[in-house]
Design a protein around this nucleic acid. Structure first.
Lengths: 299, 299
DNA sequence: CGGGATTGTCCAGAGACTGTACAGATCACC
DNA sequence: GGTGATCTGTACAGTCTCTGGACAATCCCG
């Protein structure tokens, strides 16, 4: 199923569909500048319409976002572009023969994690992260594997130890990618799991996806008491606070506090435990898509 | 081995990327002075853009930080530069004269973590891990900081959020160092925190220290149910199982199970919650030193 | 204390880097 | 056919950086 989704996305990407004005509006970068970046640094490789208009893909849009993020960090334009190009796999690289490769690598990741083989797991993650954009890896490999593992556990076909082992390998890797995610001058997001909630990987994924869009992330992690979250929000004055939980019960007691917090900051709840009615009761936003999509929709 | 890894890392990131203005902003050293330090002491060896602009690498940035630290200590500029160059060329050198440097870097780590500054924290960790053996960093910087943070929290001088934030930064870093720690052909250790126990950093530290002595590590992490630990021990047949907890109560219910597990494997308990009487009751070993020392004494 | 060495700062003129602007032509769509 | 968007190519201004040397404050040592 995920492979199918990937294919569809890639088709759309390959088809190219944004003209320069629309890309400019979305990214806030002047058309002249977009052309200059293309000419000078090869940042973008738009397809062309029959009449010669540039047609940009999702990947192009992402590259512009990356470029802007790097500029905010203070890098020179030439260097920012070099990194943006390097860091986001070229669309043809990611599409042509790679959907099977994605599937293969995901398969070996699953196998390695299931059998407590850390070294092989890291190698599989290397292949994934080396060949695909991080959003792709999260959405198509890591997150599906984790939720599948949860289901297998519920069905008695996986152990808690496997889940713990896999979580720690993945957590280390994701936190490694998170390095420096609080730098720059984008809006700041404060992320925390609800009290008693120990599943932080989806929240880290969300942070990474948000980071790619220029946000600054402050991550408090699992089992964060609501009082200290409120205090920290007051101290850091983030543009957004996200509280995540896998089950409803862990969010229910927070409703009143979140509603109060809502008066000073934008607040959202996320995770399988975040329901429509809870969001309504607390008068906060609901992030109900997968972490990568949620980050994309947030902007 | 770790030195080798570090070297490789430095090689990879050797590519220049910061222009002089940005390096100046980041380090707080005027551009003129940066050029003067390069000209007079050879402190920096920036690459050049095609047009002749200096392009500095991470290593250069670190050298400037080192230089500044030495200047703050009162060294003359020439001497400070000499040390900065020498030290950054030999990251594993732990001379007597570097104790102040260890202290300085630990200070900036504390400051950065306390104020939710992830980027600065990582930079401080870079300096620590670049300049000292990992055991030194764990024993003299990271673990003391964490226990101090715990005490400050108990005394009302630190928040849970600070503890959570710091834990996640450090956890990401340590798990990054843990990469591949299950490979090789040494004896295998299976590490887990007791049920409900969420503090896993000391246990990770212990795993890293053990790894340096040739062990293979399988890490299950926080809040591991005892049943799945026993199952996994049966499956992996490790040479040693370690269960860790910060308070006694989390180990007490495990005594009987551990005694049974003892019949098939060597077992130890660790952490502040592991007491003499518990170890005796369960007939298992007691690791009561700090993680690094405990690993050294285990052999 | 005096004199030399050290060290942080400053400058001018030239060139590099980068965002923006414009002219004249073409394209897309009603 | 008209209107708005986009095309190419070039130009330009503002900012940053370069080199090489000068200079004043400070330090060190006899």
């Amino acid at each position: 199923m995920y492979v199918q989704i990937l294919y569809n996305e890639l088709m759309v990407e390959e088809a190219g569909y944004l003209r320069i004005g629309e890309l400019s509006r979305r990214t806030g970068v002047a058309p002249e500048l977009l052309r200059a970046w293309e000419r000078r640094y090869g940042l973008l490789r738009p397809a062309r319409s029959s009449g010669g208009f540039r047609l940009y893909s999702h990947a192009d849009e992402r590259r512009v976002e990356l470029m802007r993020a790097h500029l905010r960090e203070g890098l020179a334009a030439a260097e920012a572009a070099r990194r943006a190009v390097e860091h986001s796999a070229l669309p043809d690289e990611e599409s042509a023969s790679s959907a099977p490769e994605l599937e293969t690598a995901t398969g070996s990741l699953r196998e390695a994690l299931d059998s407590f083989d850390e070294t092989k797991s890291q190698a599989a993650l290397d292949r994934l992260l080396g060949g695909f954009a991080i959003e792709t890896v999260l959405r198509n490999a890591i997150l599906p594997y984790l939720s599948d593992l949860g289901e297998r556990w519920a069905g008695g076909n996986a152990t808690v130890a496997q889940e713990h082992f896999a979580s720690n390998v993945v957590r280390g890797r994701l936190l490694g990618l998170a390095r420096g995610w609080d730098s720059g001058d984008g809006p700041r997001a404060l992320l925390a799991c609800a009290p008693e909630e120990l599943h932080d990987l989806a929240l880290i994924s969300f942070g990474l996806a948000l980071r790619r869009r220029g946000w600054r992330i402050t991550f408090l992690g699992a089992d964060t008491p609501i009082d200290t979250l409120v205090d920290t929000a007051r101290q850091l004055e983030p543009s957004l606070v996200v509280v995540s939980a896998t089950v409803r019960q862990r969010l229910t007691p927070l409703v009143d506090t979140l509603r109060r917090l809502r008066r000073q900051t934008r607040v959202a709840i996320a995770g399988a435990g975040a329901t429509d009615s809870l969001a309504e009761a607390a008068q906060v936003e609901l992030l109900d898509a997968d972490p990568v999509t949620a980050a994309a929709e947030l902007v």
